[in-house]
Amino acid sequence: MSNKTDSNTDVRGSTALVTGATSGIGRAVAQSLARQGAEVVLHGRDRGRGEALVKEIARQGGSARFVAADLTDAEETLRLAAEAGDVDILVNNAGLFEFAPTAVTDAASFDRQMAINTRAPFLLVGALAPAMARRGRGSIVTIGSSAARSPAPIGAAYGASKAAVELLTRYWGTEFGPSGVRVNAVSPGPVRTEGSAAMLGEHAAAMNRTNARGRAGDPGEIAELVTFLAGPASSYVNGAVLFADGGELSTLPA
């Protein structure tokens, strides 16, 4: 990370809250926003990983602090918003996927996925967007998923939770856009992260056969889109869901 910023993505003077910032896409987003000059509030559950990332960003010339919170708990989510303070950029990245058929997805699993993937963004937007609107500026970016639009035999609860938050993005763009707050989402296809590798195991290579690029995405590629949406270059983009899936195929190649 260097101190050099791009004028199109320069967010110096801004404070950004990134949920799920200690690994995968969230980590890449936090590093990208810090590189472009934002002071980043890192959220996660593991304090050790969070503090390590704070130190890494500082070594690379950025500024960050860490707040731990369990997003399955509504009160913890609201506490996170309070401790983050006045933020200019909110990135709803934290996500939970439990890919299982409907018949073996119990109520607790369904509730966990909805709590983290849908309710937490809803509560954070409700807590933080009004202050952005009063200041007349702000950017909210939510990480969706291609599962919201591409049904599969497993993962219905996860897909529903992501479809809900992508729809909420359009509602929020209408609700807060007139006050200067832009609300958008990035909807990735398969991305190679620690979580996806652990979930798929020996089948991880199958991610490379789901799109026209012939490979899974990299967290840094998603982070670039989030940084674009957070910065001045996207000033006319609001209520949009940007697909980043490598050109999704309708069927898997033979």
Rank of each mutant, 00 (worst) to 15 (best):
M1P: 09
K4E: 13
K4G: 11
K4I: 14
D6N: 15
N8S: 08
R12L: 12
S14A: 13
T15I: 15
L17A: 03
V18Y: 08
T19P: 01
G20F: 07
A21N: 04
I25T: 05
Q31S: 11
Q31I: 10
R35C: 11
Q36S: 03
Q36K: 07
Q36M: 10
E39D: 12
L42E: 06
G44V: 01
R45D: 04
G48A: 14
R49N: 07
E51Q: 14
A52N: 09
V54H: 00
V54P: 00
K55F: 12
I57V: 13
I57E: 07
S63D: 03
S63R: 14
A64M: 05
R65H: 10
R65G: 05
A68Q: 14
A68M: 10
A69K: 01
A69G: 02
D73F: 15
A74I: 03
A74S: 12
E75F: 07
E75N: 11
L80Q: 00
A81R: 02
A84G: 02
G85N: 09
I89K: 00
I89F: 02
I89H: 01
L90T: 01
N92Y: 10
F97M: 12
E98C: 11
F99M: 10
F99A: 00
T102Y: 08
T102K: 00
A103M: 11
V104Q: 12
D106K: 06
A107K: 04
A107T: 06
A108K: 09
A108D: 09
D111Q: 07
Q113A: 07
Q113Y: 05
T118P: 02
R119A: 07
P121I: 01
F122T: 13
L128N: 01
A131R: 15
I143K: 01
G144I: 07
S146P: 04
A147G: 08
P151H: 12
A152R: 15
A156D: 01
A157S: 13
Y158D: 07
Y158A: 10
G159D: 04
A163E: 00
E166Q: 13
L168Q: 08
T169A: 11
T169L: 14
W172Y: 14
W172T: 03
F176P: 01
G180W: 12
R182E: 08
R182S: 09
V183P: 02
V183H: 02
A185L: 06
V186T: 01
V186Y: 08
S187Q: 10
P190S: 08
V191I: 15
T193V: 14
S196E: 06
S196R: 10
G201P: 15
H203N: 11
A205T: 00
A206W: 11
N208L: 08
R213E: 07
R213F: 13
G214M: 10
D218W: 15
E221R: 08
A223I: 12
E224H: 13
L225Y: 09
T227K: 03
L229M: 05
A230D: 02
Y236M: 12
N238G: 10
G247V: 05
S250Y: 04
L252I: 06
P253M: 08
